[in-house]
Computed example of a mutant assay.
Amino acid sequence: MSSLNNCIKFALDIKDKNIVFKSFFYKMVQMKKHKIYEAELIQPACPCCGALDLLHNGHLITNIHYLTANASHPVIIRLAKQRVKCRDCNRWSMAQSELVNKYCSISNASKLKVLSALTEDSSMTSIARENNVSVNTVQRVLGSCSHHFLDSYEYLPAHLAFDEFKGVDRQLHFICLNGDNHQVVQILRTRYKKTLLKYFGRFSPQARANVKTVTMDLDFYYQDIVRACFPNAQIVIARFHMIQMLTRSFNSLRVQVMKTFDKRSRQYQLLK
Rank of each mutant, 00 (worst) to 15 (best):
M1P: 15
N5R: 06
N6W: 08
I14A: 03
K15A: 10
K17L: 09
I19A: 01
F25E: 14
Q30C: 11
H34I: 01
K35H: 12
I36E: 06
I36R: 05
E40I: 08
E40A: 05
L41C: 03
Q43V: 00
P44R: 01
P44S: 00
G50L: 00
D53S: 08
H59G: 04
L60M: 07
I61Q: 11
I61A: 09
N63L: 12
I64C: 05
I64H: 06
Y66S: 12
L79F: 09
K81G: 03
V84M: 04
D88L: 10
C89P: 00
N90T: 00
S93K: 05
M94A: 04
M94F: 10
A95K: 00
E98K: 11
L99H: 03
S107E: 02
A109V: 09
A109E: 09
K111N: 14
L112G: 14
L115D: 15
S116T: 10
L118G: 11
L118M: 14
N132R: 08
V135Q: 13
T137H: 08
Q139G: 07
V141P: 02
V141E: 13
H148W: 15
F149L: 03
A158V: 09
A161T: 13
E164K: 13
K166V: 13
D169F: 07
R170H: 12
H173K: 15
N178P: 03
H182E: 04
H182Q: 09
V184W: 11
V185M: 10
I187P: 02
L188G: 15
R189P: 14
L196S: 02
K198M: 07
G201L: 02
S204G: 09
A209K: 15
N210Y: 12
D217P: 02
L218M: 15
D219N: 14
V226C: 08
C229Y: 06
F230N: 02
P231G: 04
A233H: 02
Q234Y: 10
V236A: 08
I237P: 01
S249D: 15
F250H: 09
N251H: 10
R254T: 03
M258W: 08
F261C: 14
D262T: 00
R266K: 11
Q267I: 05
Q267M: 10
Q269I: 01
